[in-house]
């Protein structure tokens, strides 16, 4: 695989995770259980839009076909997206959103801690900025998961249910293919095998504190590395890309 091609795909993967999760979180706008939480979820979403902008802009530069971050965000189709299946899952209730956030933010904390030392200067710079944000995202999600786990009977049930439902999408976070191998050799990408035990330990500790059971590692759904998604992504893109698709000549 040509270096540029691998780097392009890898950058899209990271950019798409930020983009798609920012879209999901923005759906909470005016729907949160209290205003403080409406503002917090918007904050998370804003951080991720910023990260998506930086990464997709970089992807466009690597590809060298004159695409901007907006072209890449609003004019690609379902099969051209490489975000993890976890982040495209619908918001569900507040417990579902927080369990999803805990899983992804813990992953991103370890991932970007490694990425900060990447030989790719752009990645290293984006990682340094992202880390500051992710630490807050993770604290926020962790606090809520513990509160819900150790709150009322209902909240305990809901958060355990969310953890169970989402568990099958966590295996994919650590999947590696030729793209990863190429870039790890060059000192650019993060070795996901190395961060997996850290993630397992962290999540195990949080769930224990929250009096929750860590699900068994059963069937793990995958596909995103090849652009195979759950049915949810198509609907999300439909909504997100509506104006750009309906008025292709317009500038906004």
């Amino acid at each position: 695989m040509a270096k540029q091609d691998a780097l392009f795909k890898y950058t899209l993967r990271l950019g798409d995770n930020a983009l798609i999760l920012s879209q999901r979180l923005s759906e909470w706008c005016s729907y949160a259980p209290l205003i403080e939480e409406d503002l917090a979820l918007t904050n998370l979403s804003l951080d991720m839009i910023g990260r998506a902008q930086a990464l997709l802009k970089y992807a466009g530069e690597i590809e060298g076909m004159g695409k901007t971050e907006d072209t890449l965000a609003f004019r690609r189709s379902e099969r051209q997206y490489y975000n993890n299946l976890l982040v495209e899952q619908p918001n569900g209730d507040f417990a579902f959103t927080m369990a999803r956030q805990l899983f992804i933010s813990a992953f991103e904390l370890y991932f970007y801690s490694e990425m900060e030392h990447s030989k790719d200067k752009t990645f290293a710079a984006i990682a340094a900025k992202t880390l500051k944000e992710v630490k807050y995202h993770l604290e926020h999600a962790k606090d809520w998961v513990i509160r819900m786990g150790d709150g009322t009977g209902e909240s305990h049930y809901r958060i355990q249910h969310a953890v169970n439902e989402l568990w099958m999408y966590t295996g994919e976070l650590f999947e590696m293919d030729d793209v990863d191998k190429d870039l790890i050799e060059q000192g650019i990408a993060t070795d996901l095998d190395a961060i997996r035990p850290l993630w397992n330990k962290y999540i195990g500790d949080v769930l224990e504190t929250a009096a929750l059971i860590v699900p068994e590692n059963g069937y793990m759904q995958t596909g995103s590395r090849k652009g195979i998604h759950t049915e949810h992504l198509g609907h999300l893109l439909c909504e997100m890309q509506y104006l750009q698709r309906a008025y292709p000549d317009a500038k906004w």
Binding site: L19, S26, E27, C29, S30, T42, S45, I49, A52, Q53
Partner: peptide, 30 residues
């Protein structure tokens, strides 16, 4: 007032537009 504006957050036509709109609605909540 967050509702009529929130109605367009997921359909904002560019990343910058989405960012500006979300930040505005966040201000209103604040």
């Amino acid at each position: 007032g967050m509702q009529p504006e929130g109605n367009w957050v997921t359909r904002a036509p560019s990343l910058r537009a989405k960012q500006i709109l979300l930040a505005k609605i966040q201000d209103e909540g604040g």
